[in-house]
Design a protein around this nucleic acid. Structure first.
Length: 270
DNA sequence: ACCCTCCTGTCA
DNA sequence: TGACAGGAGGGT
């Protein structure tokens, strides 16, 4: 479910619910998630919720050592879901992997495929890479050109490299390249200055629009707030194999790059 | 770039 | 039954 816009949506919706809440305890139901320092979380107060790349970060006061700060990060990977629940009671449910029990309500972590991770660290930096966030001020055409360098990696897989740029996944990589009219197989290092600038601007435009539409996600949490992802109506190529390009009438194609589907218009993206 | 793995589910 | 799924880490 989550790329940058979906994670941003979850963060914005969770923030008012979680900020100021106190953590009573953390219940870990999936042995794959063992190793979390649940003791230091207990008693901590949630200071804020923020997006750390594709992760959802919670800043807490350390329940054990007074005054200190503590961070925890949820990485939803493919099927993770964070659901705010107003009644706190140790609940069960299919795919429920962990629960953060709060003074009022609880935060439920569901994850069908169990790829998701939960980590605890003393600082946010430990939970992040040094990669550039495309929504930050640092993300300029010049910086993007610098990050790309002379690599021969095709531009679509390059956009998904989380060690350079955080947040872009399969859907938005396809959509961004469509917006640029760039063939996903183009070696990233061969882009002209003008194309890099276009890529930078399209990345921003697509992500901002997707955030504005609350992502492509449909989740129980959003339902409980009466909102659901709306970006699917704006998808130009993702998941549209065989359907007509909205600009030129050509059939959208699907190819495989790095074991992932890439959708593009063979006519608009040469 | 390629391949594989981690998981569980749905769909043709 | 096999292909595929919004992610990422490992190895070659």
């Amino acid at each position: 479910m989550p790329e940058l816009p979906e994670v941003e949506t979850v963060v914005r919706q969770l923030a008012p619910f979680l900020t100021g809440r106190r953590v009573e305890r953390m219940l870990v139901l999936d042995p794959k998630l063992d190793g979390i320092d649940t003791d230091s979380l207990a008693g901590g107060k949630i200071r804020g919720v923020s997006r750390l790349g594709k992760q959802i970060g919670l800043e807490l006061t350390n329940g054990k050592s007074g005054g200190g700060s503590l961070w925890m990060a949820f990485h939803l990977r493919m099927t993770g879901r964070l659901i705010a629940c107003s009644d706190s009671s140790g609940r069960t449910g299919k795919h429920l992997r962990a629960e953060l029990v709060l003074d009022r309500g609880s935060l439920l972590f569901y994850d069908m495929r169990r790829f998701g991770t939960i980590r605890v660290a003393a600082t946010a930096e430990e939970l992040l890479t040094t990669a550039v966030d495309p929504m930050s001020a640092e993300f300029t055409a010049a910086r993007l050109a610098e990050l790309i360098g002379a690599t021969s990696t095709p531009v679509k897989p390059w956009l998904m490299r989380q060690d350079r740029l955080v947040g872009i996944g399969n859907i938005y990589a396809c959509e961004i390249l469509y917006g640029c009219g760039l063939n996903p197989r183009t070696p990233a290092g061969k882009l002209s200055g003008k194309q890099v600038e276009l890529l930078r601007n399209e990345t921003r435009r697509v992500l901002e629009l997707a955030i504005d539409k609350c992502g492509t996600t449909f989740s129980d949490f959003q339902d409980s707030h009466g909102r659901s992802g709306g970006f699917q109506e704006f998808l130009q190529v993702y998941g549209r194999k065989g359907e007509r390009c909205r600009h030129c009438w050509a059939a959208i194609e699907r190819i495989v790059q790095q074991q992932r589907s890439t959708f593009f218009c063979p006519s608009c993206q040469r």
